[in-house]
């Protein structure tokens, strides 16, 4: 029997595999394919205070081993989520994280204050890193000062733990991670997508209406892994790693470099039960290698 549980300090998870925000809808979309209780948890699609229209299509481009998206965080607002969707998620004994967005610092806080009134949310993942909502991929996580101040405000407003989701589109990820830690974040998740583009040579136009989008999928895994390694070496708060995880061995790489848990993103589109499969593949690895507790494998990288 392998003990797959992990402890984020503020929260214990059944296993280290979470589904990443923006790739798992509001969770309900995956009910036909898997038992949501079989994974460590999931992060629901980013929520602004109010509903969001999102970007005009085309919103997706497939690239070599990857996917560029410019959805623009279309979705319901906190009210519809809390009143209509959350009640249907409460029956699950799995950790439900809400990815919180804002067009301004005030909007993040309004969303958090609204959601504070509802039961059934394990933590907020503060989405300070979406590249698709402001011009040129601008977002708070590109700046350590803004990361610090916004995390601090969110932490003051929140009755739940705050996980800051960081952007890879920076020169020094460690500086931003430290700013999030100093701002009071209970945890860090990274990486969000990598700012990217693609061109149609026939029309000489960008393939995305938004011009830029965020690259995800297996193409970005080595970059994500490097950044997670850099961050776990620099902060004391738990780190959740993500970026291109398709298999159990991908997830294990992130755990070995020191992530306490992982988020699985783009893989959910191709295989809606990817998270469940990855839990199984991690368990198989542990059995084969006589690993009794997955937590014991975290941060065991030998350098």
């Amino acid at each position: 029997m392998v003990d797959l549980s992990v402890d984020l300090g503020f929260l214990k998870l059944r296993n280290p595999v979470l589904a990443a925000s923006g790739t798992f809808g509001y969770g309900l979309e995956f009910e036909p394919f898997m038992d949501l209780n079989s994974i460590g948890g999931f992060v629901v699609k980013g929520l602004y205070f109010g509903p969001r229209e999102g970007n005009p299509p085309p919103r997706l481009v497939e690239t070599a081993g990857g996917l560029i998206n410019a959805i623009g965080l279309q979705g319901v607002g906190v009210e519809q989520f809390a009143e209509e969707i959350l009640p249907r998620l409460r029956k699950y004994q799995t950790a439900i994280f809400v990815n919180v967005c804002g067009a301004s610092d005030e909007e993040y806080i309004r969303a958090i204050e609204y959601l504070n009134r509802y039961e059934g949310i394990a933590a907020y993942e503060l989405n300070i890193s979406c590249p698709n909502v402001e011009k040129n991929g601008a977002c708070p996580a590109l700046n350590s000062g803004h990361t610090f101040s916004l995390v601090k405000l969110a932490k003051q407003a929140s009755r739940l733990p705050i996980i800051a989701k960081l952007s890879p589109n920076v020169t020094d990820i460690v500086e931003i991670a430290k700013a999030a830690e100093e701002g009071g974040a209970d945890g860090i998740s990274l990486i969000n997508t990598i700012l990217a583009m693609a061109v149609d040579i026939e029309t000489q136009r960008p393939k995305l209406t938004n011009i830029f989008g965020g690259l995800s999928g297996p193409a970005i895994k080595p970059i994500a892994l490097r950044m997670v390694y850099q961050v776990v070496s620099a902060v004391k708060i738990p780190v959740i790693g993500m970026g291109g995880i398709m298999t159990g061995s991908d997830a294990l790489e992130f755990l070995i470099v020191g992530a306490k848990a992982v988020e699985v993103g783009t893989a959910n589109f191709i295989d809606p039960a990817a998270t469940l499969r990855i839990v199984g593949e991690i368990e198989d690895f542990c059995r084969r290698n006589d690993v009794k507790k997955i937590a014991g494998l975290v941060g065991t990288l030998k350098v």
């Binding site: 809808g25 036909p32 299509p57 919103r59 997706l60 998206n69 979705g75 589109f269």
Partner: peptide, 8 residues
Amino acid sequence: FGACWGCV
């Protein structure tokens, strides 16, 4: 199946 919001 409705999870990515890419095909609007």
